[in-house]
Design a protein around this nucleic acid. Structure first.
Lengths: 227, 227
DNA sequence: ATAATAGTGTCTGTCAGACAATATCTA
DNA sequence: TAGATATTGTCTGACAGACACTATTAT
């Protein structure tokens, strides 16, 4: 282990995903400074001296979205540190993935025009994010898709109380597939700890009242829901 | 995004796992300097100015074990960066997981007493690794266990040509379970791209000659082998 | 021969996928 | 009444788990 340790700036970036308007969307901010001035980027910032990595991610999430960490799922996604990823200096970013329910006010603190929900598929197709954020977003998308299979995280995209149809739409949007309502209902209600019935019903989606459920306490799905 | 970026030292640590003597073992090195002088730690070192993260991990692996990256599986595991994890300075480590076949010479370059294969379960039970390396090792173990389910990575613990029984022993050792030889054989040979028959046989395990297989080109298992 | 290991077939229960009709509400 | 959505049961094919014997080599 050498004694030299070259100076590196550590940042924390966020891939914040939500399901809005039948699409999977990601929160982007417009850069207000060089490099990549004016281009869209993932929200993020520098790690502070007294913070752990997950604390920095939670702080950035709060600052950029006003979201409380208790209401969203937040996990570390991975680190990116190519020597030339930032022309100003050597940086390593620890990217985090956040899954949030659809929210009324998704804009940033400073200026509404500086933050925006964008359809993930469109952003990836344009391939014009600042830095290596396109690769980070792609990794976040793949992580989210995979996690829906074997964890109950789809509920993180829903309000606290949700219907089985709303949960199914999350899967359909994230995976880009159609799912049979009967088989889906059977699998979800059959997986131990995935959802818990609240006893209430709602007609917010129109039609016959749907029963409301809440996320259960399972952390993994047995059996998994395969794509 | 603040303009200040406090100085942070970025290191790369390795969780190198192998299956030896019917046990899952991890490569540890004895620390030759403070802090934690004399205690066992994961191999690792500082990120160099011109390296990407995976290049640094590959270099450390080569330096510490002499292993060629082409022969082992190497993937990023996650980053740890609690403010007080190293008393000397603020450090963030990007941990990587390496899965290696059983090797004849597992010691480090400098001194044989400085590097050692240890049984993972014993190390975790003792809970006496330097820094936060115990937590990192636990994460690596869990990652390896999970990956055996839905990827063909068990072959990374085997020599280039292996028998189905040798592959089964990898699963049994990593998962700590016994598997039915018939069902295992059926599932492995039935999963597309998991193993490819070489046509050769071996009697290195004694008894009736066993057919030799090589790792296939699949990157995920369909269907997965569940624990 | 004996010992050691490899290799294989069947049965049974469970689960996944395909499929359409009825129930309950709003407008 | 029309329209919208929720909810539910059955059938069938595939797979998972349990289970014991035969084959082939070395000593």
């Amino acid at each position: 282990m050498p004694s030299a340790h070259p100076p590196v700036a550590v940042t924390v970036d966020l891939v914040v995903l939500t399901v809005r308007d039948e699409d999977l969307q990601v929160l982007l901010v417009r850069r207000g400074e060089e490099p990549h001035l004016g281009r869209w980027a993932l929200p993020g910032g520098f790690l502070r001296p007294d913070e752990d990595l997950d604390q920095a991610a939670a702080r950035e999430l709060r600052e950029e979205t006003g979201l409380d960490v208790a209401r969203v799922h937040l996990e570390q996604l991975g680190s990116w540190g190519a020597p030339d990823r930032d022309p100003r200096m050597r940086t390593v970013t620890v990217a985090h993935l956040a899954l949030a329910p659809d929210l009324p006010a998704p804009t940033a603190g400073t200026d509404a025009a500086d933050a925006q929900w964008r359809v993930v598929a469109d952003v990836l197709a344009e391939d014009d994010l600042a830095f290596d954020h396109g690769a980070i977003l792609a990794a976040g998308l793949e992580r989210a898709r995979a996690k829906l299979e074997y964890t109950p995280l789809a509920a993180a995209f829903c309000p606290a109380d949700f219907t089985i149809s709303e949960l199914r739409r999350v899967y359909e949007v994230v995976w880009g597939t159609r799912l049979d309502p009967r088989n889906f209902h059977r699998k979800v209600t059959g997986a131990a700890g995935f959802v818990v019935e609240t006893g209430a019903t709602t007609t917010r989606d129109g039609g016959r009242p749907a029963r409301l459920f809440r996320a259960g306490d399972a952390r993994t799905l047995h059996p998994p829901l395969l794509r």
